Simulated scan of single mutants.
Amino acid sequence: MATPVVLQLPGWRNSGPDHWQSRWEARHGDVRVQQHDWEWPRRGDWMARLDDVVQAQQRPVVLVAHSLGCLLVAAWASVSRHTARVRGALLVAPGDVEAEDGPVPPLPGWRPIVRERLPFASILVGSQNDPYCTLARAQALARDWGSDWVDIGPRGHINAESGLGDWPEGRAWIEPWLHGAGAAGPA
């Protein structure tokens, strides 16, 4: 069985060099799905780009999404004919674009958040003090998407400022998908 390609799906404004996604890309050879516009993302454009990248892979894929990337996975999975190519998805710190008083400006086209159950295994990792999504909202998204839920405590937006470094604990959650097994679930 072929080892999957790990596709990194950063959120709004991309992930900088100290972000765990960038570190995984450098360390493990993951593939970042590059978007045309990181500053003013359009959901349809991002979905089309993800579909193109998934189709271009010669192997199955594991999706690793952060923030707006989590919402991208849900929206893409609701319409794509290529979801069977996904072994699993790690969804980290989803951004709540529906929050009226949140720190993200309104991003046209991203509301409402697609809340259909994902057609592949997934783990959603949330933080108790994420300024971009309350713990209750993240837990609700995990339920709606059928994702295993992981609360990693007060780690902010689970980004470079969270001090995770290479974040080996996060990487461990995708290892079963990389080696052909079903999701082991969070430990």
Rank of each mutant, 00 (worst) to 15 (best):
N159I: 12
E116W: 15
G153V: 14
A99T: 04
Y132E: 11
G126A: 14
D144E: 13
L124S: 10
E100I: 12
A93W: 11
P154F: 08
D166N: 12
D144K: 00
G165L: 00
E100P: 10
W110K: 04
L141C: 01
I123V: 15
I113D: 13
E100F: 04
A142P: 13
P154L: 04
V92G: 00
W145G: 06
S127G: 09
R115Q: 14
G153A: 02
P94E: 01
A138W: 09
A138D: 06
G95A: 13
V125A: 05
A136Y: 11
D96G: 02
I113W: 03
Q139L: 11
G146F: 05
A136P: 12
E98P: 08
S147Y: 02
V150M: 04
Q128Y: 10
S127N: 03
S127L: 13
R117T: 15
T134N: 07
T134A: 08
W149R: 05
W145S: 09
G146A: 09
C133Q: 04
N129V: 00
L141T: 07
E100K: 14
G163Q: 01
I152R: 03
V114F: 02
G146H: 04
Q128K: 14
V150S: 07
N159S: 15
L141P: 05
W110A: 01
L91C: 03
S122W: 03
E169N: 12
W149M: 01
R137I: 14
E116S: 15
V150K: 12
R143P: 12
W149L: 06
L118R: 08
D130H: 03
T134E: 01
R137M: 14
S162D: 10
G146N: 05
V104A: 14
R111M: 11
A142C: 12
A93L: 13
S122D: 00
E161I: 15
I113F: 06
P103G: 07
